[in-house]
Simulated scan of single mutants.
Amino acid sequence: MRSVELFAGAGGLAIGMANAGFQHAAVVEWDHDACETFRENQRHHAHAVEGWPVHEVDARSFKFESLGQDIAVVSGGPPCQPFSMGGKHQAQRDDRNMFPEAVRAVRELMPKAFIFENVKGLTRKSFASYFSHILLQLQYPELARRKGENWIQHRARLEQHHSANKGAATYNVLFDVLNAADYGVPQKRERVFFVGFRSDLGARWSFPDPTHSEGALLVSKWIDGSYWDEHGISQKRKAEVLPRYAKRVELLRSAPVLLTLDRWQTTRDALKNLPDPEAVRDHGISNHVFTPGARAYVGHTGSVLDEPSKTLKAGYHGVPGGENMFIKDDGTLRYFTVRESARLQSFPDEYEFRGSWSQTMRQLGNAVPVKLAEVVARSVAASLEACDTLAQTTN
């Protein structure tokens, strides 16, 4: 099934889509360094991006009619700074708000489905009005905003159409906030996903169930001890860490539950088998370079090793400290290398990044974790395949 990837960034969502079986007809990204990341991986024949048609262009100027009419899915993460807790909170007033271009792609391509991702901050109460506008636009992409019509007037027109419409919406749209840690990503990263299916398909779909849990991680640490054994952690270290979890451990021991999910993956899991770049410089691992200067300050204390990392962030003015560093076993702090950050975002080790340290960390801070993207994309692909099978049997 052919797909189009918008606002591709470093390629997390695009790789997840490709892993799920989608074939990219176009990968659109305006940032030069991010496009150089794609090109570098294509030069050394990284399987994840082999043969992708990369377009280094502003999505607002991309001509979708050049792609034909057989696009199964449009996916992408419209720039999230307008809605980020760390941004300026300007939403629809921010010229980086690319949701209108996501809707234009759906309107012009009329794909069978779409997958869009954004920061959890978009669901805040202060953005409720604009959030409803996004949903209505995705449900009725053919009702484009008129010349001279502001977004409030456009939303009112969409609401009137929706309330008076006797038939189904053009697209049936669902949204939910997913935590990447619940799907095997070693990072606590909550993002809102919008998934829509063209209503004429009659698709049956729901968001995929979590595959990993915090409870299973706690059991592996404090009930059966398998986590510590796996990493060769000493009894002393366990005793140092235990007070942080004492109340939750007490609950687990007093009321044990049947655990059917895998455990959360931790920062320590992600960094396993990577040498300390401060101690070992000549290791031959790409993007694994020590950066000095990590320090803690109020609200920015770094990730702990034995939990999923904090959410990696792009940073509006450079790399934010607390979200892009971790606390070592000896209590000192160190910035994540680009390679370590890539593992926290579940990129394959063969995937290389181009640009300065701050620029590559920005690519990673904006990325969709590959593993999470793949889980969502596979569920969408399965639903579309079921629709195709049903259509063939009824014809």
Rank of each mutant, 00 (worst) to 15 (best):
K188P: 12
V106D: 05
R124C: 15
V106I: 04
K125H: 15
F193G: 05
A180M: 00
V106W: 01
T170C: 14
A168C: 11
K188C: 13
V173F: 08
D182V: 07
E117C: 02
H133Y: 10
R191S: 07
F114P: 11
K112I: 10
F114H: 04
L122F: 01
Y183L: 00
S129D: 01
A169F: 06
V106R: 05
K120G: 14
F116E: 01
Y171V: 12
E159L: 11
G148V: 06
K166L: 07
S163R: 10
F194H: 07
T123D: 02
Y130K: 04
R145D: 03
H162Q: 09
L109V: 07
H161F: 13
V192F: 06
G184S: 03
L201M: 13
V192G: 09
H162Y: 13
G184L: 00
R146C: 10
V119Y: 07
S129Y: 08
F193N: 01
N172I: 15
R145I: 09
I115Q: 04
A181P: 12
A156R: 10
N179F: 07
Q137I: 09
E159N: 15
Y183M: 03
K147S: 07
S199R: 05
S206E: 15
V119D: 02
H154T: 03
R145T: 09
L138C: 05
P208S: 14
K112F: 11
L201P: 13
H162E: 02
P141C: 03
S163V: 14
I115F: 05
L136R: 06
R155V: 10
G184Q: 06
E108M: 08
R189K: 03
F114W: 00
L138W: 02
S213K: 08
D176H: 13
F116V: 07
G121L: 00
F175T: 15
M110S: 14
P111A: 07
A203V: 09
R146I: 08
F116Y: 11
E117N: 06
K125T: 12
Q139C: 13
K112D: 14
E159M: 14
L122T: 06
Y171H: 09
H133L: 07
E149I: 02
S126Y: 07
Q187P: 11
F197H: 03
E159V: 15
G167D: 08
S206Q: 14
R145G: 04
P210H: 14
F127C: 00
S163Q: 10
E214R: 15
S163M: 13
V173T: 04
A128Y: 08
S132E: 06
D182G: 03
F131Q: 05
S129A: 10
N150W: 05
E108W: 06
D176Q: 10
A181H: 03
A144I: 08
N118Q: 03
E214F: 14
F114M: 03
I152Q: 00
R204M: 12
A156F: 09
L143S: 12
I134M: 00
L143N: 11
R189W: 04
S213P: 12
K166Q: 13
F197W: 01
H133T: 12
R145N: 01
A113N: 03
